[in-house]
Nucleic acid binder design. Sequence first.
RNA 1: CGAGUCGGCCGGGCGACCGCGGCGGGCCCACGAGGCCCGUCGAGGAAAGUCCGGACUCCACAGGGCAGGGUGGUUGCCAACAGCAACCCGGGGUGACCCGCGGGACAGUGCCACAGAGAACAGACCGCCACCGGGUUCGCCCGGUGGUGAGGGUGAAACGGUGGUGUAAGAGACCACCAGCGUCCUGGGUGACCAGGACGGCUCGGUAAACCCCACCCGGAGCAAGGUCAAGAAGGCCGGUCCGCGAGGACCGGCCGCGCAGGUCGUCCGAGGGCUGCCCGCCCGAGACCUGCGGGUAGACCGCUGGAGCCCGCCGGCGACGGCGGGCCGAGAUGGAUGGUCGCCACCCACGGGACCGCGAGGGCCCGUGGGGACAGGAUCCGGCUUACAGGCCGACUCGUCCG
Length: 149
Amino acid sequence: MEAVPSSCLGRAAPARAAPPPTVLPRALRITRPQDFRLVLRRGRRAGRRRLVVHALATSIPRPARAGLVVGRGVGPAVVRHRVSRRLRHLLRPRLEALPPGTDLVVRAQAPAADATSVELGEDLDAALARLGLDHHGSGSSAAAPRLTD
RNA sequence: CGAGUCGGCCGGGCGACCGCGGCGGGCCCACGAGGCCCGUCGAGGAAAGUCCGGACUCCACAGGGCAGGGUGGUUGCCAACAGCAACCCGGGGUGACCCGCGGGACAGUGCCACAGAGAACAGACCGCCACCGGGUUCGCCCGGUGGUGAGGGUGAAACGGUGGUGUAAGAGACCACCAGCGUCCUGGGUGACCAGGACGGCUCGGUAAACCCCACCCGGAGCAAGGUCAAGAAGGCCGGUCCGCGAGGACCGGCCGCGCAGGUCGUCCGAGGGCUGCCCGCCCGAGACCUGCGGGUAGACCGCUGGAGCCCGCCGGCGACGGCGGGCCGAGAUGGAUGGUCGCCACCCACGGGACCGCGAGGGCCCGUGGGGACAGGAUCCGGCUUACAGGCCGACUCGUCCG
């Protein structure tokens, strides 16, 4: 079964080596209203035009989690659901690179309605980099302590 | 073949990889209702607007009056409806068909812009006619008084139409026919109503998505309904002022609620509630109120998806629909799953090329490149209505033309 993905991707586009995106499972999501309030009020914040990322480091030993806020300002139900689905796909691989115990809340703004998945991914990376949480270089271990103050 | 009317249906298909939510099963375990694997199911015709009608849940359930809301041709269908079907009436179209918030305007009240002389028991501007006075080229002209709703002009609408009698000129003033109104009779229809006849008085607007009248119907709140368990014993919300860049904090006042303490009223004389609002009346009924002090929780599960259910066949009915038989199980989330990245095919639109048909404008076919695919997503569940929608399919019927 290991040979199947490589052949499939190889036929389509050999240059595109990106790992297949996945959707957030329920365990990795923030669901309780109190947790949302905590992250939005106490966490650090980095805003882009299309979305705002709040991050809060906790001492609880568990994988990093994420929650979504897509308000009515973004659009009707179909548009809101499309935006949150794209964000869920984009969030999963990025979440694995974060230090354990990190809680993330991503708020979508109105311009997110017309954005593509690629654009939203760029916004996410930029916001995470501003928070010192980017997974590409710079070392996540060095960024983690800065969250607490 | 062209133009058109009505009804029904679809809402791209197949595949690859990686995923998400529910249910069922198996395995593992450092047991945490954690991990892995398999099977299965997983948005719409409108899921939408939340406009009607129900199911369901809780509260209430002697009744009456007033107020309030809804419906409005008839007969059916339906659990019910403001829905659907057939029919009736009125209007439109050559026609198939379409449109109608379709009870009552002799119960009463109100309103009818602009134009016009006059608009609701109407109205003399011009005109017509008579009389009086004056003038006269003897045709008539000018002024006044009165008659007249036939003619002109205005309007959506001018108080019936045509012909005659009549008259100074006219007028349903009178007569005939027609139209319209009312009453009665006969026949047909379950009925709305239709057809025919007789008589009557003589014409007697519109508006009830204006008040109103008539007939019929209507308890209130809603799944955040409601229930179980756990946790916790006290705060929550609203308004104002002040402080702070801000998140927020402090103080004061009001409302709801729990515990403790004190007080007042009350269970023969009824505190306080309930019966949609008010009044009468009825029922439940032992607590209610005031002051002071103290300073919370808000999570899980049930409800929760098998139902006026869907598909097929037969029978009854013009039809909506109903009956019988057989088969099927097709979402149940809860910061809210059904997606992401692609490939192929089909469809539509541009551009380019090729051969073909046609005198021609042009037409379809094949290939290549590029682009496009709407309106829109459950949140207790059904039946409707309304609104949005790229593109496409099927059937019935009408009118016109050509061929036979």
